[in-house]
Design a binder for these strands. Structure first.
Length: 1174
RNA sequence: GCCCGGGUGGCGAAAUUGGUAAACGCAACAGACUUAAAAUUUGUCGACCGCAAGGUCCUGUGGGUUCGAGUCCCACCCCGGGCACCA
């Protein structure tokens, strides 16, 4: 009947190539957009065809998608399971350089080799849809996407410090840097100031983050991704909310003298003028506010003359001119013709020629509105600001015009009262004095700011430099940090470094305190605002910095202990530790009923100070009035504790004191005998022990004792206590939330509740920041897609017209990187020099190329419509196949490929190219296969196993089964050539069942027996249970990608069936279940049973729920939770019945003899647990 | 330091909702078949006590919840991965 039966040896080397050829010839796996069928798009991350070929680890993911793809096809889906090659980029180029072959030729050779290696594994790829990122027909569309990004302003040229790898001689994106080193070659990266193309991925940061948790139509998560990858992306995007707050800077040297000129119908005492004078003077500035003559009937000549004769105007003067004062100021300046330091124009009066609305004012006739703009610019050194109030839309156009004429900084803002007429106008102050914006997530600690730190590269450092007294030192520091590598700079464990900008102060807007300004490299220029307000008491980095440089710390958040009781009125007072310096003993109060130990405390009475309260309580409760020395023990504490005598929860805040006394003082003062407690003297260790035993929940008392011990030991007064027991009091910043103290009107509030309030109170803004940086998109290398723009001398950046795409990569003699920051393409002059598409003038092509992540950011779409010449993907095919139902690949792509691709996909969605907001619905990672030595498989370790060899000795089906059976799919497991025989034995077992003589004689027509005509032979009924159970298990497991247990259940089934009589139908089911895993052998045996159609397009077996479950259950009998016996029972047996049987079992009985039975727990179909009472 | 995973026999690993821990496979040992070997096949295979029947202890460590914990809670130890001066 069939030839294989004659020679019944399983020989994969014969059958595997045979079927691979047949499948290819029949185009069995061609993907079709069949509207009658549901689609299933299953995708592998396409490989980078390196010169080394595949090792056994690579195909693991491909086998998995192949299993799923075959499974879905058998289930009637129209399946898309494509493959292609990601061949641009450094590895291909470096390989080419090393072997001195053109990368194009090397890639072609490597792709051929990869394809051959993949083919022998029997994958069902539709090769007619193959894509290759280096094919001009493909990268035409990569370039097209770039042009669309450019059109939407999402691609831009930036001139900022970027990561530069000196070995690979190219810039890198943030994502390409690992711990400060180039991800490819491990060289420490350098920061280099270069002009680069950058993609504005940050515009999508919020969506990239939010859509990780997007829901589909059924309110289920849209993305079925491993939680760890989602978390990785969340961290990488790094969203944080916080406040941006302005800190004004003041300079000690070269004191600025401010001249405030009021306007029409104003005066030195009106509007914001007195307030501004006051604030500026507080910070040591000189301020003059002249009262201009005839404010209500102003004459130009008179007022200008007054200013020139009465006010001192020199190179240190900044004129702040309000309204009509601005006209006077500019006229005076023109006449003076000497340089001044700066000019701030606040809502200047408007030239009636500019807007008729202003024609009717009385002073118009007398004033002349023609300015010598050039002179004003020259005399102010260009330092002019024009403030425009959003409450005055009529005036705004003129101010804009004025600012334009003067090349001034236009500050469009909102005043407190129209035309900046309020008593306080902070916006004017802000414009008048330089200010630095800081970003903080803890505005609640604003009152604790004791200094400010700028990044060395912060632009304000250069602005402030003329005022800096220690210029040389500061410049040396900036130089040094600019020379350091990223690793050196960002090493969190290194000691902090920094330099103070002497002569520069920052003003804390919360309390108008001046604090020193430092520069330090622990502040990063490119995060937040590049400047931080330092709160050493509540921030670890600031703390370390302050400790090193002896800067002040100020506690503004007090810790709280215990859970608050909202009904309770908090009590404020003092707590006192008492120390006898002769005996080295501490005092505590010993209470009775219930027995407990505490310390001396008391509430404030009337207007007492904390210290007065402490002294009074000390006298009342301890009878001590003579104290040798008083100490404050740290900041205030807030406690929520259980008062044992009053039996209620209390809230109290206290200031801590330590009183050091002499022994003889105690005896000399008699105290009132108290009814409820005694004063006792203990060592610190004893007290700690007593507290632990009697008041374990009052942690604030522990804290106070600890603080006292640490202080006394530190001062050398207490020489006996072992401080190691008190290390719960740590000399570290307090980072947790708590209660605000020393924070003005915010004191007493909980830190979590005041963030926005404090921010607003100082005019700050609540903002969102991301760690994600824009994607540096240029590479100074040859082997990548040319960036399709032209640099024209006249027109600037001109995009290559879409009709001229692709911009093909020219052939070159030398593709060695130049290392100069220019691409090797610069040398190809006939390619570089082009005519500008706009003006036809001489122009040059952009010579940088794209990173290798460009082509891989959209390849999955090209598979859907690979031959389309009109569009990157046609809408019909896109709608049919998208989104990807299953995407399988390595977890190492979490923060690069998977973020970039999501970014591009969302952009393509916005411009209407794709119809889904996310590309990959279900994502699964492959666990790496390690070498047999447990290390990563690598040529370097000599532990590489070649799949070709394995296929040669064991067969492709065996390799496939083994890799799927090794363990959980996403887990990293070491390869074991020894273990692979198990998979081979399993296949041979199936083979033997098929060929063992004479199989077809044992074949029994099951359908006939079920119709009742023929009696069922024994064993077959049992078989069908096994079969249906296995169908269910394998189906479920493939759907949830648990391939190892799917195979294990197939093994169990085969083991069982081998022993019994097996029907032809049952055997065919087994072959079908095996087909996705071992496509060749199942096809061979399927054909041997006489089938003409391929098993891979036959239907997937369906299980009968009645037969897929057992009809009998093993009931476990436990006595006191210990297994003592078991029995079988029909599914769904009555509880009482089960209990009765359980009690009657001989192995149970002996445990029950003479014992009393208490509770009996019966779990139907599972167990009976008999609990004995004694 | 922070954020994710994970820790089960000699090894890879199983164990839907808490309900017989170690399914399936590898290796090992013993037997059958064989002149012999390979292949195949049968059996044993967590530890301890015991001739045995049987018993006791076992899922990184310690505690807790529960009739019952690999599974839930708390603390800690170890391994892998990611981020790392992100204000």
């Amino acid at each position: 009947m069939i030839s294989l039966m004659k020679k019944n040896v399983y020989d994969p080397a014969k059958i595997e190539p045979k079927w691979q050829k047949k499948w290819a010839a029949k185009k069995l796996y061609k993907s079709k957009e069949d509207p009658k069928k549901d689609k299933f798009y299953v995708l592998d991350m396409f490989p980078y065809p390196s010169g080394e070929g595949l090792h056994v680890g690579h195909p693991k993911g491909y086998i998995a998608t192949d299993v799923v793809s075959r499974f879905q096809r058998m289930n009637g889906r129209s399946v898309l399971h494509p493959m292609g090659f990601d061949a641009f980029g450094l590895p291909a180029e470096n390989y080419a350089l090393k072997t001195k072959t053109n990368p194009e030729i090397a890639v072609k050779k490597n792709v051929e080799r990869y394809k051959k290696q993949l083919e022998i594994l029997g994958f069902d790829y539709d090769w007619s849809r193959e894509v290759n990122t280096t094919d001009p027909k493909y990268y035409k569309w990569t370039q097209w996407i770039f042009l669309q990004l450019l059109k939407k302003g999402l691609a831009y040229e930036s001139y900022e410090p970027v990561n530069w790898c000196p070995t690979d001689k190219t810039v890198l994106a943030n994502e390409d840097v690992e711990n400060g080193r180039c991800e490819r070659c491990g060289t420490p990266v350098e920061k280099k100031l270069m002009k680069q193309w950058v993609l504005k991925i940050t515009d999508y940061a919020d969506r990239l983050l939010k859509d990780l948790d997007a829901k589909d139509g059924n309110a289920k998560p849209l993305l079925d991704w491993p939680a760890s990858i989602k978390e990785l992306q969340r961290n990488w995007i790094g969203r944080s909310e916080g406040a941006e707050i302005d800190f004004r800077l003041t300079f000690a040297k070269n004191k600025t003298r401010f001249m405030i000129l009021h306007g029409f119908e104003g005066g030195a005492k009106t509007d914001f003028h007195p307030w501004l004078k006051d604030v500026l003077e507080k910070h040591g500035q000189q301020v003059e506010v002249p009262e201009l003559p005839n404010s209500y009937h102003p004459k130009e000549a008179e007022q200008v003359e007054y200013v020139l004769t009465n006010c001192k105007l020199d190179e240190n003067t900044v004129i702040v001119a309000h309204s009509l004062g601005a006209v006077v100021a500019m006229k005076a300046l023109m006449k003076l013709n000497k340089p001044i330091s700066g000019l701030v124009i606040v809502a200047s009066a408007v030239d009636p020629k500019f807007d008729k609305f202003y024609e009717s004012r009385s002073f118009n006739k007398d004033f002349n509105w023609d300015y010598d703009y050039a002179a004003i610019k020259r005399l102010t050194g260009g330092k002019i600001a024009v403030l425009s109030d959003s409450r005055e839309p009529k005036r705004a156009p003129y101010l804009k015009y004025l600012a334009d004429k003067l090349s001034a900084r236009l500050v469009e803002t909102t005043s407190k009262e129209e035309h900046f007429c309020a008593i306080e106008e902070p916006e004017v102050l802000k414009a008048v004095t330089p200010s630095v914006k800081v970003f903080t997530t803890r505005p609640d600690t604003l009152f604790g700011v004791t200094y400010m730190v700028l990044a060395p590269e912060h632009p304000w450092v250069q602005v402030a430099m003329p005022h800096v007294e220690n210029k040389a030192e500061v410049e040396a520091y900036i130089f040094k940090s600019s020379r350091e590598t990223e690793i050196e700079r960002t090493d969190a464990t290194k000691e902090k470094t920094g330099v103070e900008l002497k002569g520069v102060k920052a003003v804390n807007p919360a309390n108008n305190e001046e604090v020193p300004v430092w520069i330090a490299d622990y502040v990063l220029a490119d995060y937040g605002t590049g400047a931080v307000m330092a709160v050493p008491a509540h921030d670890e980095r600031d703390w370390a910095f302050a400790k090193k440089f002896g800067l002040l710390t100020r506690d503004v958040i007090a810790p709280t202990f215990g859970e608050p009781n909202p009904a309770d009125e908090p009590v404020d007072g003092s707590a006192i530790m008492i120390f006898d310096r002769q005996k080295s003993l501490y005092a505590c109060l010993h209470w009775h009923n219930p027995e407990r130990y505490t310390i001396v405390t008391g509430a404030k009475k009337g207007s007492e100070s904390y210290e007065e309260t402490a002294r009074r309580e000390l006298k009342e409760e301890a009878g001590i009035s003579d104290v040798k020395s008083w100490h404050r023990l740290g900041g205030k504490l807030f406690a929520h504790y259980y008062n044992q005598s009053k039996k209620e929860f209390k809230s109290a805040s206290s200031m801590q004191f330590l009183a050091v006394i002499d022994s003889h003082d105690i005896g000399e003062h008699s105290r009132e005998p108290h009814e409820t407690f005694d004063l006792e003297w203990k060592t610190a260790a004893e007290m700690l022990d007593l507290f632990e035993k009697t008041i374990p929940k009052s942690r604030h008392i522990f804290e106070i004792l600890g603080r006292a011990v640490l202080l006394l030991c530190g001062l050398g007064i207490d020489k006996t206590t072992d401080i190691s027991k008190f290390d719960f009091v740590k000399d570290v910043p307090f980072l947790e939330p708590g209660i605000l103290i020393d924070s003005g009107r915010f004191s007493g509030k909980a830190s979590g509740t005041v963030m926005k309030e404090i921010t607003e109170s100082v005019g700050g803004k609540w903002v969102t920041k991301f760690k994600l940086r824009d994607w540096v998109f240029s590479r100074q290398r040859y082997w990548g897609e040319p960036i399709p723009v032209i640099q024209c001398e006249n027109c600037g950046v001109v995009p290559v017209p879409e009709k001229d795409l692709p911009v093909e990569l020219p052939k070159v003699k030398s593709y060695e990187p130049t290392g100069t920051g220019e691409s090797p393409l610069v040398a190809v002059s006939n390619w570089v020099n082009v005519k500008c598409p706009k003006c036809r003038g001489p122009a040059k092509r952009e010579t940088n190329t794209m990173p290798s992540w460009a082509g891989s950011s959209w390849y999955y779409l090209r598979y859907e419509d690979p031959k389309n010449t009109k569009a990157m993907v046609g809408p019909k095919n896109e709608k049919y196949w998208s989104p990807i139902d299953l995407y399988v690949g390595g977890a190492e792509h979490a923060t690069r490929h998977l973020i970039y691709a999501r970014f591009w996909h969302k952009f393509l969605y916005d411009i209407g190219v794709v119809s889904t907001i996310e590309p990959f619905i279900k994502l699964q990672h492959v666990g790496l296969i390690m070498g047999e030595d447990g290390r990563k498989m690598s040529k370097r370790f000599g532990n590489v196993v070649n799949p070709d060899e394995i296929v040669k000795t064991f067969g492709a089906d065996t390799l496939r089964i083994y890799e799927m059976f090794m363990g959980p799919f996403d887990q990293q497991i070491a390869w074991s050539t020894e273990s692979i025989v198990g998979a081979r034995r399993f296949i041979e077992k199936v083979w033997r069942i098929a060929v063992s003589a004479p199989f077809w004689l044992r074949t029994f027509p099951l359908r006939a027996s079920q119709s009742g005509k023929v009696p069922l032979p024994s064993g077959l009924e049992q078989n069908s249970r096994i079969i249906h159970k296995t169908i269910k298990k394998v189906t479920d497991d493939i759907m949830s990608l648990r391939f190892n247990t799917a195979i294990s259940s197939l093994m169990i089934a085969v083991n069982e069936l081998e022993k019994a009589t097996i029907s032809r139908e049952d055997f065919e089911v087994i072959l079908k279940l095996l087909a996705p895993f071992a496509p060749h052998v199942s096809e061979e045996l399927w054909a041997s049973l006489g089938h003409k159609e391929s098993i891979h397009v036959s239907g997937w077996p369906v299980y009968d729920p009645k037969l897929s479950a057992d009809d009998e259950a093993t009931i476990i009998v436990q006595i006191n939770g210990k297994v003592r016996g078991s029995f079988k029972s029909k599914i769904g047996s009555d509880k009482g019945e089960l209990e009765r049987i359980a009690k009657g079992l001989p192995e149970t009985k002996k445990w029950l003899e003479g014992k009393k039975i208490g509770r009996v727990i019966v779990v139907p179909d599972r167990l009976v647990n008999i609990v004995l009472t004694d």
